[in-house]
């Protein structure tokens, strides 16, 4: 398995891990009555901002740990250079992830128009953001294995 494929698998699991743990923590605080997520949109804004910060920090740490473990296991310290094929694969995977997130956005707005509670749109953003990221990394693994 190539470095890029392993990195994509790590990205999928770190994305799932961070999102699920953070979502559970927020839901627990909502259950305890520390804030009301069905009505308090300012809190939603804060939740998203904190999530972005935590997500970036955790992923950097996970990437560093992954690089160290990979270097020990394969005895290759250097990160492989990114060539034209890597860039094309990333571009196609990003396109797929945009399709997923845009579809989620349209579905959320449609749900809103059909009378769904407003707070559901935020939950949908998180869910479709995660799906888009999995699709991004999953597409990259697919293109690396099957060709483009």
């Amino acid at each position: 398995m190539s470095y890029q494929e392993k990195q994509n698998i790590v990205n999928i699991f770190s994305g799932l891990l961070v999102t699920i743990i953070y979502a559970l923590m927020v839901y627990q605080r909502h259950q305890q009555g520390q804030f009301d997520l069905t009505d308090d949109f300012q809190t939603w804004g804060r939740i998203f901002l904190v999530f972005i910060g935590i997500s970036v920090a955790v992923r950097i740490v996970i990437q560093i740990i992954f690089h160290i473990i990979n270097a020990i296991a394969t005895r290759e310290e250097d990160v492989p250079l990114e060539d034209e094929r890597d860039q094309l694969i990333k571009l196609k995977a990003t396109r797929n992830s945009y399709y997923a997130f845009t579809s989620g956005f349209v579905l959320s707005v449609l749900g809103l128009a059909l009378g769904m509670p407003v707070h559901w749109i935020f939950i949908a953003f998180v869910a479709f953001g995660l799906i888009a990221e999995i699709l991004d990394n999953g597409s990259q693994i697919y293109y690396y294995r099957k060709g483009i």
Binding site: S2, Q4, P80, L81, D83, E84, R85, D86, Y144, K146, G147, I148
Partner: peptide, 19 residues
Amino acid sequence: ARVSRQTIVAIEKGNYSPS
């Protein structure tokens, strides 16, 4: 060629058309 070995493998197999 200043590319990765994986890219050479993909080109040889016909899985990738180079620029």
